[in-house]
Design a binder for these strands. Structure first.
Length: 496
RNA sequence: GGCGGCAUAGCCAAGUGGUAAGGCAGAGGUCUGCAAAACCUCCAUCCCCCAGUUCGAAUCUGGGUGCCGCCUCCA
């Protein structure tokens, strides 16, 4: 079986073949750190986290690099508004980023280059572009000459003559507010270097003090950290044009090589059918969402239910559905912790128990194969999740039978295999159930007391004082203790 | 104006030529004093519309309709 990925550059699904067998160089265009991350960022981060996890699971050694854009007008504006500095603002939101991602169980990248740490590489690249005739200085700024690059538009599939300048509605052709407009030879040219403005951070350069434009940092970081050509370049589909188009234009004339072999783009998160974005004001931050009680794994499921290239709609109903879905999956994932001991598994107390890295599963089993087939098809996560649910429901059922009947017909080792397969595959999607989620720390119930109450309830039932019997049941329920009446007048209890 | 995408049950969603995965929600039954839990069962003759190709179409082709994204802030 081969992994196929949809490549924006070629507009089709292609068999993934890395530059170097067994190794993958992957770069994800990360966030501009001027505010807390919202659900849209969560989607991108989770999807590329899963791409990376899946590649690793498929046996590749993945080198995963993600940048932080920490030089930007929006960061500066925020710093000004707060009477703070650009550095202080970006540090704060980088910290917040790490906090949010840890909660979402997004693995850390191998490296997190920042624009402010890549100035040498940026200046070198601009210098090379200038030497080769792709860039020109203009009163302290340096611009990229779009018409000098014949392949311009290859990624986004557009021609310069077909594009409307300012169609995005933010700049107008004759806009006098755009101070760069008169300096550009062509309206489509973009800034590689911006001359310093008074009171703003600036770095020395051959063109005078200033700061880099937005697109150049990614070209420079990829080159510095991963080399001239990488395997996978990922990001939101709103970055295809101009950001990724410009990255190609900046890198390829200098190196003479493709910047990336596979360009992968995720779809947007929508609210009421429209893209979630800062400018529309319809965004929800990750931390707000999680602080309001949404389980991070439920949020993952929300994102995984749809294919990564399609838009997904953020609604209360969808979130509630994901929350309930997670409860189902979680029961399957916790099976080993709840029943392993009673099934005679001897290692349930070991520190490595439940660790997917220590588990060996049957890679040829039908379920694993189905999972892999789905994921091999351009990361069809919703197909993969379906396999997880089938396994989780089966385990939940067995667990329920164990709770209610005390025994099961399925043999212990086979159950162990089923459980481990679920845990391992869930881990590939970054879905993990913490054992601690299960046990409420509020009250540790005293078994003798409960037994006494159960006996008391049985007596009340016998005397047909059902109201009194129900009060006892409700009282225990409030403490998280669920009573199970079984045939023959027996009552058992377990924690919720 | 240019480029691209999407349309499948009450909701979300996979499936891209062989007769509709999965999730959420819902219904009936068993059990029960009633519940809860559990167990069993059910839940799209059909995939936006029209025409065509084919033995066979949700899937391919042509034409519509509707919605969305990008066109120098963007994940």
């Amino acid at each position: 079986m081969t992994l196929k990925l949809y490549n924006t550059l070629t507009r089709c699904k292609q068999t993934f073949v890395p530059l170097e067998p067994g190794h993958v160089k992957m770069y994800y265009c990360g966030v501009t750190v001027y505010d807390y991350c919202h659900l849209g960022h969560a989607r991108a981060c989770i999807i590329w986290d899963i791409a990376r996890r899946y590649l690793s699971w498929r046996g590749y050694t993945v080198r995963y690099v993600q940048n932080f854009t920490d030089i930007d007008d929006k960061i500066l504006n925020r710093a000004k508004a707060e009477g703070s500095s650009m550095q202080a603002v970006s540090e704060r939101f980088i910290q917040a980023y790490f906090e949010d991602m840890a909660r979402l169980n997004v693995m850390e990248a191998d490296e997190y280059p920042r624009a402010t740490h890549t100035l040498d590489g940026i200046k070198r690249l601009i210098h090379d572009l200038e030497q080769k005739g792709y860039a020109y200085p203009a009163s302290g700024d340096v611009y990229y000459s779009v018409r000098a690059f014949h392949n311009y538009g290859q990624l986004s599939g557009r021609k310069l003559e077909d594009m409307q300048v300012g169609a995005g509605g933010r700049t107008e052709v004759t806009d006098t507010d755009d101070p760069e407009a008169p300096k550009k030879k062509d309206p489509f040219d973009f800034a590689l270097w911006k001359a310093a403005k008074p009171g703003e951070p600036a770095w020395d350069s051959a063109w005078g003090a200033g700061r880099p434009g937005w697109h150049i940092e990614c070209s420079a970081m990829v080159r510095d950290r991963l080399g001239d050509t990488i395997d996978i370049h990922a990001g939101g589909n709103d970055l295809i044009f101009p950001h990724h188009e410009n990255e190609i234009a900046q890198s390829e004339p200098v190196t003479g090589k493709p910047l990336a072999n596979y360009w992968l783009h995720n779809g947007m998160v929508n609210v009421a059918g429209q893209k979630m974005s800062k400018s529309l004001g319809n965004f929800t931050t990750i931390r707000n969402l999680l602080d309001s009680g949404l389980n991070p794994m439920a949020l993952r499921l929300f994102i995984l239910q749809a294919h990564y290239r399609k838009p997904i709609d953020f609604t209360d109903e969808a979130i509630a559905s994901s929350q309930n879905s997670w409860e189902t999956l979680k029961e399957g994932l916790l099976f080993g912790y709840k029943f392993g001991h009673s099934l005679g598994w001897i290692d349930t107390k070991d520190s490595s128990f439940g660790d997917p890295a220590a588990m060996r599963i049957d890679a040829d089993s039908e379920l694993v194969q189905r999972f892999q087939t789905a994921m091999d098809d351009d990361l069809n996560t919703s197909g993969g999740v379906a396999v997880l649910f089938e396994m989780a429901k089966e385990l939940r059922k067995t667990g329920n039978i164990l709770t209610h009947a005390g025994k099961t017909d399925t043999d212990s080792q086979s159950l162990r295999q089923q459980w481990q397969t679920l845990v391992v595959l869930a881990q590939v999607l970054g879905l993990e159930a913490k054992q601690t989620e299960e046990t409420p720390s509020t009250t540790s119930p005293v078994p003798e007391k409960i037994e006494a109450l159960i006996e008391q309830r049985a007596a009340e039932k016998k005397a047909k004082n059902f109201a009194a019997a129900d009060r006892i049941r409700d009282q225990l329920k409030a403490q998280g203790i669920v009573l199970v009446d079984k045939p023959g007048g027996l009552t058992e209890w377990h924690l919720e």
